[in-house]
Amino acid sequence: MSEELRSDKVMDLKGLPCPMPVVKVSKGIKEVEIGQVVEAVTSDPGALADFPAWARTSGNEILKTEQSDGVIKFYIKRNA
């Protein structure tokens, strides 16, 4: 039913605590084109609040959030 999201870049941020996930994803997203999607995987529970806050502030868009086994996966579209 739901279309599988395709990502243009995968970032493994597992095991990294604050502030690294957000710092790294803000760098990583600059490496894809505007409109492309970064898939960021983190084990930091704080990211559930931090990634949306970062996306709102930096003008990017979280398309989807998946959670499983202590791992959170974000699909982020570069808009800015």
Binding site: V22, V23, V25, S26, G59
Partner: peptide, 11 residues
């Protein structure tokens, strides 16, 4: 330093 580096990430 965490706030400083985080702020850069926030643009």
């Amino acid at each position: 330093l965490i706030i400083a580096t985080g702020a850069v990430a926030m643009g």
